[in-house]
């Protein structure tokens, strides 16, 4: 009977996972994201999930059947000679191999695709600091430093007395988001200044470690209709305030983005015309903030 409960629980979770929209705060699943790659990753995740469900139904079904059927209290007599069955053993070795091959094909394809950052139209350099993110638009020299917003920062202090539910986008809001264009292939060059961080925006399906002395590459091309704000967080333990360096990307149409970039350029360049050129030529590990 407890097994029945287990089966019901598995069924409930299965149904719930399959309909992500059914729950609001009680989120159960990954979101498909805003790029073709992120949807591929989501599909891959769901394919793997359903394979696991199918295997679970078979394996757990077999176990539960044995637990119910072969109880001593029900008079079951053991078949002590059943210790070997070549046919069954070959099947349960070969069948998983075939299933794994079926799983590996789309996974390999998607992996190869995520690796190809060529033909990008815009390059942004991302630098992780304890505990904020620096963004630099390499071609125009525009720089943005992105830290946790004041409201969240005040509320997250030990014993602040501020109820986090009253803070909009608590811990997921920044002062200056990363503004990016939709419909443009953007290349990211990711590094860090002090310790290892990891730049993660779930909607892009990008998580790439920011490592001092290394420049990692990633890319995305956001659907043109997916403008808006998307949020992420640092995903590699980077010290005391690791939980307090969120990432916000502000996706705008190509025209809006270009207008924004021009304004920024105009605001930043007169102050120090040499800085942009130096930063563009310098290596990514050098301070940019």
């Amino acid at each position: 009977m407890n097994m029945k409960k287990l089966a019901t629980a598995i069924a409930t979770v299965t149904v719930a996972l399959a309909s992500p929209a059914a729950f609001a705060a009680w989120t159960l699943n990954m979101t498909p994201g805003i790029t073709a790659i992120s949807r591929r990753v989501y599909d891959l995740h769901m394919i793997m999930y359903w394979w696991c469900v199918a295997i679970a139904i078979f394996v757990f079904g077999w176990m539960i059947y044995s637990l119910v059927r072969f109880r001593k209290s029900q008079g079951a007599v053991p078949d002590t000679k059943l210790v070997h069955n070549t046919k069954a053993e070959i099947i349960w070795t070969v069948l998983p191999v075939l299933i794994l091959i079926i799983m590996a094909v789309p996974a390999t394809r998607t992996l190869i695709e995520t690796d190809d950052a060529s033909k990008s139209e815009l390059t942004i350099r991302i630098t992780g600091y304890q505990w904020k993110w620096g963004y630099q638009y390499v071609d125009s020299g525009v720089e943005v430093l992105s830290t946790l917003d004041h409201a969240s920062n005040a509320a997250r202090q030990l014993g602040s007395g501020i109820d986090p539910t009253t803070v909009p986008d608590y811990l997921l809001n920044v002062d200056h988001p990363l503004v990016v264009p939709a419909g443009v292939k953007v290349r990211l060059l990711i590094s860090a200044q002090d310790v290892i961080h990891s730049w993660w925006v779930p909607a892009l399906a990008i998580k790439k470690d920011a490592i001092p002395g290394f420049v990692n590459e990633a890319w995305f091309k956001i659907d043109t209709d997916k403008t808006g704000l998307y949020r992420g967080q640092c995903a590699e333990l980077c010290g005391r305030d690791h939980g307090f360096m969120p990432i916000v990307i502000d996706v705008r149409s190509k025209a809006d983005f270009e207008a924004w970039l021009k304004t920024q350029q105009a605001m930043q360049r007169p102050a120090d015309p040499a800085a942009a050129a130096v930063a563009t030529a310098g290596d990514a590990a050098a301070p940019t903030g």
Partner: peptide, 27 residues
């Protein structure tokens, strides 16, 4: 990725063997 997926095979063999041990047992 591929070498990690291989681990599923011997691990699966183990789980199947344990299940088969219970099969036609007296539990």
């Amino acid at each position: 990725m591929l070498s990690t997926m291989l681990i599923a095979i011997p691990t699966g063999v183990k789980v199947f063997n344990w299940s088969a041990t219970m099969w036609k047992g007296s539990l």
